[in-house]
Design a protein around this nucleic acid. Structure first.
Lengths: 345, 345
DNA sequence: TAGTCGTATCGAAGCGCTTCACTGAGCAGA
DNA sequence: TCTGCTCAGTGAAGCGCTTCGATACGACTA
């Protein structure tokens, strides 16, 4: 193994000089730099990152805690993770992959063992058990999601409240008066996952303002579950002409079942979803949707974390707090004017 | 920060003793061990993993290279990744997340910088550019997938050839004589992704032996693409009564389109898929399928890598070479006896 | 000409842990 | 009684890099 000392010897300089050439933290004359660089090239030297991490007290590693859940939509989690990895690399960091399974213990492990300089947390609950250790240990962090108490925390998320409002605005403008929300799985609400609640809050508020009737039903993905939920909705509110959908697993079943029930989309019923563009575009009927900017969230999280690390290497707290991305609604084929009131189906 | 030296001082022993208590590499008398352990507890000591990595020449980190592709089925990649992370933790390792984007350079970076003790490679091509650096640098590795030249490499994969055969056997036994294969996206074949070819080989061989007519069409996911491919197939071979499906993105569209075309599943047409059980179970018609054991592959890869590291810490090559998991076919609702020959549709 | 400053480089002291060679003490066998 | 073990524990030398003074030297200023 070639070490920095070998490089120094061959270049006829001291090790510190080589180090400074590498880090650029001190001025080095052109001829010396050249000699060192040649020596590096000729020996095929690569710095040992472990030694660097120990001496410099920074590992150039970011930890990423990915949820290990079956009720979330994996492609979104995957896309965020890959965006985090890619963005981190672009900033010279590597990414350590932790699973949500580890919970607060994982945060402690990383902080205590100084494995990473900072951490990105996904799938943040309103009352997230990982936050106390984060605060105690002063580990620089960015959350993708919004806890109940975000004070002093660096958070990034889609503005789901505004997203919900946006969906309702769109439907209200089209003349719809009876709205049903097909939400995430019950477990998602039960464990206090903020984004589901926030979307609903946005929907509720705007529906109330617009004088629309509203029904909300959590819903597991899968045909039988969606069928059951849909039938209940149509039974209780036969006049429902609009759906807001926040569960990627329910997209195919819902569209398929609506057709089976004889409701044409968008002629009889409009559907607006909150989901990734890819899902909206590839649905049997391309969906009018508010896009879930998975890639953007991942990238943003890394950028904020990197900034934080540069500003306060020790682990000072974030300056800018919460950043909510404004939602964007794209009109596709699944939404249209409310049908003229006619005889119930 | 509490260091090992602090612990030693408080316990009244030398640092090496503390180290040995921690690692268990030497016998320590019960009373001494107790004193050290108490001292650790009282000081809240946690070893600095960077320092440990430097001194012990192992980082207890495994690198995982995840593909960054849009034509693969993300949930499978995600499931494998999470299984790798979980299994690694169970063996005391952390996981470094690399993206396929980095290619051979990523392998070099990890090896040169000694960031990880070994690497798990996903999405292995027949002629994979990451293998030469792997061999040159002697980095312990396990591939999930099978390259063209697996000699001396530690590989884990589903036996896709056998999986293909199994599908055909099942259909042949049900009396089907005309078979169509809806494969992965063309790009997947073009870049030489072994598993797609191997499945096809298994199908071809067995179809030939059974005297079945066979048609293979690569197919992108999505409705328009599947519709186009399906129509071509039914046009060229109107008598087709059986489909083998190897593209998760095509599941919903295919079933939906078959129904639209007036072909009942399984009465008129049987469909057998190679896909994760979850996909098969949640399809509109639960699919007879050969399961893709994503979780198992991830776990297995880690176990083999960990074994390899224990056996030959320096990075000797694997002993057992290639391990192909036997495929398992589960009969569900999408396959049935071939319909009696009748007038073409 | 002496004093001052800035620049380029060096030396050495770490970073916190592991590990090897060694020391004593206790004990069995001869 | 002496030898030869084993068992517990110690000390010190690293692991390969960073970083903080200190130094040497030429160029300016006064």
């Amino acid at each position: 193994m070639v070490t920095l000392a070998d490089v120094a010897r061959r270049a006829g300089v001291s090790p510190s000089t080589v180090s400074y050439v590498l880090s650029g933290k001190r001025a080095i004359s052109a001829p010396t730099r050249e000699r060192v660089e040649r020596s590096i090239r000729e020996l095929g030297y690569h710095p040992d990152l472990r030694a660097r991490a120990l001496a410099s007290r920074r590992s150039d590693i970011l930890a990423l805690m990915v949820p290990l859940r079956t009720d979330l939509y994996l492609p979104v989690m995957m896309e965020i993770s890959l965006a985090v990895a890619t963005a981190a690399r672009a900033h010279g960091y590597d990414v350590l992959l932790l699973t949500g399974e580890e919970g607060p213990a994982g945060v402690r492990r990383v902080a205590d063992g100084v494995r990473a300089d900072g951490v990105v947390l996904m799938d943040v609950q309103l009352d997230d058990a990982r936050l106390p250790p984060l605060r105690d240990l002063g580990l620089p962090a960015v959350l993708i999601g919004l806890p109940a108490e975000p004070a002093g925390l660096n958070c990034v998320d889609l503005d789901f409240t505004a997203a919900g409002s946006l969906c309702v605005d769109h439907l209200a403008r089209l003349g719809h008066r009876e709205l049903a929300v097909l939400g995430e799985a019950p477990a998602v609400y039960e464990r206090g996952t903020g984004f589901a609640e926030r979307t609903l809050a946005g929907i509720r508020e705007r529906a109330g303002a617009a004088g629309m009737r509203l029904l909300h039903r959590p819903c597991q993905g899968g045909y039988p579950e969606v069928a059951h939920t849909l039938d209940r909705i149509l039974d209780e509110r036969p006049g429902t002409t609009a759906f807001v959908l926040q569960n990627e697993h329910a997209v195919e079943p819902l569209l398929s079942l609506l057709r089976q029930r004889g409701r044409a989309v968008p002629e009889d019923v409009s559907v607006v979803a909150v989901c990734p563009d890819q899902v909206a575009e590839h649905a049997p009927v391309p969906l009018t949707s508010v896009s879930l900017p998975a890639e953007g969230l991942g990238r943003l999280a890394v950028e904020r974390l990197v900034t934080q690390l540069a500003d306060a290497p020790g682990g000072g707290w974030a300056r800018d707090g919460v950043l909510l991305l404004p939602p964007v609604l794209t009109v596709r084929d699944s939404s249209g004017p409310a049908p003229a009131p006619g005889p119930p189906h």
